[in-house]
Each structure stands twice: as C-alpha cells, then as structure tokens.
Design a protein around this nucleic acid. Structure first.
Lengths: 132, 132
DNA sequence: CAGTATCCCAGCGGATACTG
DNA sequence: CAGTATCCGCTGGGATACTG
C-alpha cells in the first residue's frame, strides 16, 4: 500500500484545500456560484432576489468570503444610487465546472434520505443549471 | 435569457442537492471520502488514526450522516472484539471522482488567502490523493 | 442600492470519560 | 474495538432595523 501510493499518488498539502472546502460547504455557496455563472453579472439585490430567502447579512458574509477565496469579483461603480456588479473570476468559473458536475450527479440520483424535501431552498427561483 | 434557459438548461429540484451540499460541507467529509476511497476498507479506529485529531463523536456523527446519504457503507461483523468495516458505496465512489477533481483543482492553484496555513488538518497523515 | 449593525439561536465540532 | 454520553464554546445563519 505504501509503495503503491508512492507510485500512484500525488502529494497534496491539505492546507491549500481548506479554503475551498469551507467555502464550498457554506449553505448558499454552490447556489451563488451557479447563479453568478448563469447570469454572468449580477447586482447585490439581484442575487438577493434569485436566492429568495437568504438574509442580507448571510449573503454579504458569503460574498466577502468568496471574494477572499478569489472566486468572485466585485466591481463598484461610483454612481448614485450605488451600483455593484458581482461576477465569477476565472477560478470561480473553473470551480463552477466541477460544481456543476457535482450538482448534476446529485440531482440525477434519487434522494437516499427517506425524508420529505425540506423547504430550505424551496423558494429559490433558479431551479435550473445552465449547460456548460 | 428566459428563452435561452428553457432551451439550454436542465430543471433541477434543489431539494435533492441539499443533502450532498451539507454532507460535503462538513468539516471532515471530503477527507473521509477520499481516505475511504484510498484504502477501500477501513475500520473505525483506522479512520480515527488517519484523521489524527478528529474526535470520536465528530467522526461517529459524520459517518452516520454519510451512511444516511448512501455514500458510505457500514458492515458489522459479529465478533469479539467487534469489527466494523467502512467503505464507499457506488454513489460514494462517484462522488469521490467529482471530489478529487475539486481537490486537485484546489491544490493546483496558489492559496489566494495570504494567511499562513492553518494547522487544522496538519496532523492528518494522508496527504495524498490516489489517482483514479 | 448595497449593504451594516444588532441580536439571537441551533447545532457543529471538540474534549473527555465511560461502556457493551 | 467501536463507539455513547455529557458537556460546552463557537460561529454560521437568520430576522430585523437602520444608513451612506
């Protein structure tokens, strides 16, 4: 096993993964990433509207986090009223590729939990995943 | 946009994704999935050893959750002392495929956060990702 | 419009001790 | 060996009100 691993495995510092793991793990992260990729550019309130029942603080925190991870770009226009555009960075788009495969795979299999659908995401209007 | 989506997009109930999203988001989930896939079969204490500083409760909770999501299989052998084997289900293996791509992608790019590596996972002995 | 500021709470994750 | 039981602190996420 040890030898096999040395031949076949790729050494990877897990530290570098931690950011992605926790970012992707956030409750709305995958949805925001998918939504941003879908529409290319969205303003703060547009995202709010897409993810119907997310709270402003939650979204704000998440966007900051994703920005820090270099997955989301934030552009401020000096206008009144203020305008802010959010979009995916190149990294974000790449991540979205992997994410979409995950989402597709997840949506294809039947729900293994015998519970009814929770309505956590029920009011989210974007029920679609755009093809790559 | 609406029309384009109707042509190109795939309708997806997000309910079915929720389980995966939250499961994958759990702190040790990706690591457990990767580790199980790596070694094929592992006993409870072996996983404990691999993920050096996970607490028994945390691991226990996680394994139950992954089992409920039909990602991990649990086999009990009626022996004394007891023996329990954990392994990935077919779904788990498929998920691992997507996960590995995610991990590889994450490990390739430089860490965008300028912070030092946190030592959250520092003591994890499995720093390797087995090729598929 | 694009967020803060506050307050609040459930539950995740951890430490430790114990058990069939 | 493979977990429970118990306790606990932290923070992610939500509701609501407010602001430059």
């Amino acid at each position: 096993m040890q030898k096999e691993c040395e031949e076949k495995c790729t050494e990877t510092c897990l530290c570098s993964l931690e950011g992605i793991i926790t970012a992707v793990g956030k409750k709305w992260a995958l949805l925001v990433i998918n939504t941003l990729g879908h529409y290319q550019k969205l303003r703060y309130n547009e995202i709010m509207h897409e993810l119907h029942n997310i709270s402003p603080k939650t979204l704000s925190d998440l966007l900051k986090r994703l920005e820090k991870e270099n997955l989301v770009r934030r552009e401020v226009f000096n206008e009144i009223p203020p305008r802010v555009q959010y979009s995916l960075t190149e990294d974000g788009k790449e991540l979205r590729g992997a994410v979409i495969r995950l989402l597709r795979w997840a949506s294809k299999r039947h729900n293994p939990r015998k519970e009814k659908c929770v309505d956590q995401y029920k009011r989210v209007s974007l029920h679609k995943i755009k093809d790559e």
